[in-house]
Design a protein around this nucleic acid. Structure first.
Length: 429
RNA sequence: GUGGGCGUAGCUCAAUUGGCAGAGCGGCUGACUGUGGAUCAGCAGGUUGAGGGAUCGUGCCCCUUCGCCCACCCCA
């Protein structure tokens, strides 16, 4: 092993074949989001530390953010999440924007976490948010973007599921069970941990947090009640809208979904893999009606979610849903370089092909033909052109179809048409 | 931040209790001096992640370090 300088831990090198996957995913995200009327936007990749200090979780700001001091002495942060930037940008144009606003974004984020399966320190996230609407139907529409994405990439409802609950409903239960209001976040955190702990440890933990045995047992009953949603007017409307949107096969009520994060105020949801070796949600989101005001803007209701590229790519790989032909040939045509004397003739014919809209690579220096043909084969070119002394003397070009192995020698004026003909014909052999 | 596993050729991996570092694939060259894929022959390719220690002797044992993987923590 030579001493190649190592990449930064938790980063990912996108070689062309990796980039092809990312670009493909990006295209589907765009197409799905736009079909719902969402507009693409982007925030700066660096923000002031203050922006996150306002409302992001302590863990995220204190322990996981990349913080640096610039040459003016300002403390800046590589963004660990997008929502604060969204709140900031919405607040800045509050008077100018026409609400509700639907925005989507796909970009890089940084968190200094211990790397593991499905988690890197530099990663991409797809954020989809609607600001300025507060109906349960709006929540359903926001979720429909996600479900439609799943359908588009081929992740059927037999593979992934979106669990939904509502913080308002759970808070009402807390109240009903006599749980003091300052314990609600703790109780939510306790519920959020249910799937991650053994039943005994989980019960003991609830006790430790200050919940009484009676409260724990009543909460347990509630968490097992898949019809609990019927007690919520909002969820009732939400599920009707889900039905109308044609995504009910993907969406299911789940009373134990509550999200650990403090700022959710209403509908919350998480997507899970059904046959999961990924033992955590693959994405999450919900309604956060107070966040805009907390960041200094006017109060505006909002709903949204974020999905990471790493876990999604793992899932698509696992189920064989990545397109096979994602690494297309860099060019359809390779023009060989016979010798120095004929080199410029090759350059000229390559220029003609490009003018005709045909992707054409040149072998950049004279070399033995077997080597150049091998190169053409490896890079996936369909056609090779040869201008050697014989062709040059008559103003001709040899055009070979690499798929069939047949070739013809033509006058230069006929080359573009012949190449085009080969490129539209099936790859027979 | 905590715990565990793994680093051998470009890639996938071998190497007996601690005793000459190997194979397949890929690469290059040629068979075939103006034609790719297939076949055959040959060649090149390594500070065994890095640094230190114990040993007559280490890819293998011990320590340190870097990286990767897995789980915990956390999940915006």
């Amino acid at each position: 092993m030579k001493s190649i300088i190592q990449p930064v831990q938790g980063t990912h090198d996108f070689y062309p074949e990796d980039m092809a996957i990312r670009t493909w995913l990006y295209g589907i995200m765009r197409s799905v989001a736009e079909s719902f009327g969402y507009q693409e936007w982007e925030a700066p990749l660096i923000e002031t530390l203050d922006l996150y200090a306002a409302k992001s979780g302590e863990e995220l700001v204190e322990k996981q953010s990349y913080v640096l001091t610039d040459r003016d002495g300002h403390r800046i942060t590589l963004r660990p999440e997008l929502t604060p930037s969204l709140a900031r940008m919405i607040a800045q144009r509050q008077e100018r924007l026409t609400f509700p606003v639907r925005w989507w974004s796909f970009g890089p984020f940084w968190r200094h976490e211990r790397t593991q399966k499905g988690r890197r320190r530099e990663f991409f996230q797809w954020n989809v948010d609607m600001i300025g609407a507060q109906s349960p139907e709006a929540d359903a529409e926001n979720v429909a973007v996600l479900a439609t994405f799943f359908r588009r990439v081929g992740l059927g409802p037999n593979r992934v599921i979106i669990y939904v609950n509502d913080r308002r409903l759970m808070n009402a239960k807390f109240q009903e069970f006599g749980i003091a209001q300052d314990l609600w976040p703790v109780a939510s955190g306790w519920i959020d941990r249910k799937a991650k702990m053994s039943p005994e440890a989980w019960l003991a933990y609830g006790n430790e947090l200050g919940l009484s045995a009676g409260q724990i047992s009543r909460l347990q009953t509630v968490l097992g009640d898949s019809n609990l949603w019927q007690q919520s007017q909002e969820l009732g409307r939400f599920f009707k809208a889900v039905d109308a949107l044609g995504i009910s096969d993907y969406v299911q009520y789940e009373p134990s979904i509550i999200r650990g994060l403090l700022y959710y105020t209403g509908t919350v949801f998480e997507a899970w893999e059904i046959a999961g070796d990924i033992k955590r949600s693959i994405l999450g989101g919900g309604r956060y009606d107070n966040l805009m005001a907390d960041v200094g803007g006017e109060a505006l209701p909002a709903v949204g979610w974020a999905m990471g590229d790493v876990v999604m790519t793992l899932l698509l790989e696992k189920y064989g849903l990545l397109p096979k032909d994602l690494s297309p040939q860099p060019a359809s045509v390779l023009v060989t370089a016979f010798d120095q004397e004929r080199l410029l003739a090759s350059y000229r014919i390559a220029t003609e092909l490009r003018k005709a809209g045909i992707a054409t690579a040149l072998y950049p220096e004279p070399a033995k033909l077997p080597k150049q043909f091998k190169y053409a084969d490896k890079m996936g070119a369909r056609v090779t052109l040869v201008i050697g002394p014989d062709e040059a003397a008559k103003g001709q070009v040899t055009v070979k179809d690499l798929a069939s192995g047949t070739q013809q020698t033509l006058t230069q004026a006929d080359v573009v048409a012949a190449v085009r003909q080969i490129l539209v014909s099936p790859r027979a052999r």
